[in-house]
């Protein structure tokens, strides 16, 4: 599974400043990858271009998969006319019911299934939103700050669970948490803006899986590399 962005040019309508000029990057297969960079550098815009929600002024996105990439962000809502449990039932394909039950358990959402979305905390809302994407039949899932407002321990548990449950999925994680990105992601594309060349730099993350030992000094080197690149 290969996802390539080739020679992407883009400026937001009505602005003079180019956001991307000849941006090239690629993801070479399943796993946990990331976009990293300061606010406003174009991480979400690039996600929108990849999923077809924005049209690039030039260049192309090449993805050979059967299903288009999905994009989820932390400001989505579920309608409040029924409980989150009922919502999940309705949007879960029959083949994914077992998976849904496991995810609900792993994400710590079991006691909340009878609640309405508006009755949940922000972290709980983000978790339930992520679950409904994970039960879809996806190949690529872009997660834009999807675990914002979730506590550190639960985030780690969720990331490790996702990595073991979806070995065939290609995830692109957008986050400002450098340690998290460096620890759990394999390919980290650091977006740097137009004033620096090249506009995107690839850093190899530690790609930690459940049960593996984390080499602290190697992690620090990756984090330094990311911070220097940004």
């Amino acid at each position: 599974m290969q996802l390539d962005c080739r020679h992407i040019h883009f400026r937001h309508p009505g602005t003079e400043q180019l956001l991307f000029e000849d941006l090239n990057l690629s993801f070479d297969g399943p796993g946990f990858h990331a976009f990293f960079g300061p606010s406003g550098v174009g991480k979400s815009s690039l996600a929108h271009i990849i999923t077809g929600r924005l049209r690039a002024d030039g260049g192309e996105v090449h993805f050979a998969g059967a299903r288009p990439p999905l994009y989820t962000h932390n400001q989505e809502r579920l309608p409040d006319w029924s409980s989150i449990g009922r919502h999940l039932e309705r949007i879960t394909p029959t083949a994914a019911v077992e998976k849904k039950n496991s995810l609900v358990e792993l994400f710590g959402l079991s006691p909340l299934l009878k609640h309405r979305y508006s009755q949940l905390s922000l972290g709980q809302q983000n978790r339930i939103n992520l679950v409904r994407y994970l039960v879809q039949d996806f190949q690529v899932l872009i997660m834009d700050e999807s675990l914002a407002n979730v506590d550190e321990a639960t985030r780690v548990q969720i990331l490790l669970a996702m990595k073991s449950m979806f070995p065939q999925g290609l995830f692109i994680y957008i986050s400002h948490n450098v340690m998290e990105v460096a620890t759990y992601c394999r390919r980290i594309w650091v977006l740097r803006g137009q004033e620096k060349a090249p506009p995107a730099v690839l850093v190899q993350g530690r790609d930690l899986y459940s049960g593996q030992h984390l080499d602290r000094s190697a992690l620090e080197r990756v984090m330094l590399e990311i911070m220097n690149a940004a």
Partner: peptide
Amino acid sequence: TDIEHFYRQTGR
């Protein structure tokens, strides 16, 4: 958009 996004993405 914050509610409709999911249903559009997943073709529902």
